[in-house]
Simulated assay, not measured.
Amino acid sequence: MQNLAIIGFLGENSKLVEVQDAKPFVTFNLACSTKNKQGETQTQWYSCKSSQVKLQEHLIKGKKLYVSGRPTFSAYTDKDEQAKVSVSVSVDKIEFC
């Protein structure tokens, strides 16, 4: 089993998703930025999904979080025809930093 741990910032307020005949969940996007050798900032975005709906009101844009969970990787082509990989995380643990 794979597990991914990330420390990053929320890019927007979280969203509560309620689906008929299923448990509600919260979705949010987490940004993790690093600088490369040239000093340029590179940001990786992670789409996150959590069943911890009670935290939804606290998951607001700009908050720093530690999350861990199971990653899913998907390949896609961006608008400039460049091959990219998106990362989604089914979150098991959330901690506020």
Rank of each mutant, 00 (worst) to 15 (best):
F73I: 08
F25Y: 08
S88T: 06
L65A: 01
K64D: 10
F73D: 14
G11L: 08
V85W: 06
R70S: 15
G39N: 13
L4M: 13
V87F: 04
S88W: 01
S47W: 00
A22W: 00
A22I: 00
G69F: 02
D80T: 07
M1D: 13
V53N: 08
V67N: 01
H58S: 14
K84W: 02
N29A: 11
L65G: 03
C48T: 05
M1W: 05
S51Q: 08
W45S: 12
Q38N: 14
F96A: 02
F25K: 00
V67I: 09
Y76L: 08
N29H: 05
C32Y: 07
G62F: 03
D80I: 01
T34V: 14
R70M: 13
G11A: 07
D21R: 04
K37S: 15
L30E: 01
S86R: 10
S50W: 00
K63F: 00
L59K: 00
K49V: 05
L65W: 01
D80Q: 11
F25L: 01
Y46P: 10
F73P: 15
Q2Y: 10
Q38Y: 04
Y66A: 14
R70C: 11
K54D: 14
V17L: 04
K49Q: 13
G39R: 10
L65Y: 00
S74Q: 14
T77Q: 14
K61M: 12
N29L: 06
S33W: 04
V19K: 08
Q52M: 11
K15G: 07
L59I: 00
L59E: 00
E95T: 07
H58C: 11
V19C: 09
Q56P: 06
M1C: 08
Q38E: 15
P24M: 06
V87K: 05
P71K: 09
S50V: 01
V17D: 03
L30N: 03
D78R: 07
A83D: 15
S90K: 11
K15H: 07
K79V: 08
T41E: 15
V67A: 04
Q82E: 15
T72G: 11
K93A: 12
Q38R: 09
T27E: 12
A75G: 15
Q2I: 09
C32I: 01
I94L: 03
H58R: 13
S14G: 09
S33Q: 06
G8F: 03
F25D: 00
Q42N: 14
F25P: 00
Y76G: 14
S88I: 03
L65D: 01
S47P: 05
Q38G: 12
T72E: 14
K35F: 07
Q82K: 10
G11Y: 03
K61I: 03
D80W: 02
L4Y: 02
V85G: 15
K35Y: 11
W45K: 08
A31G: 07
L59M: 02
N29K: 13
V91L: 11
S47L: 03
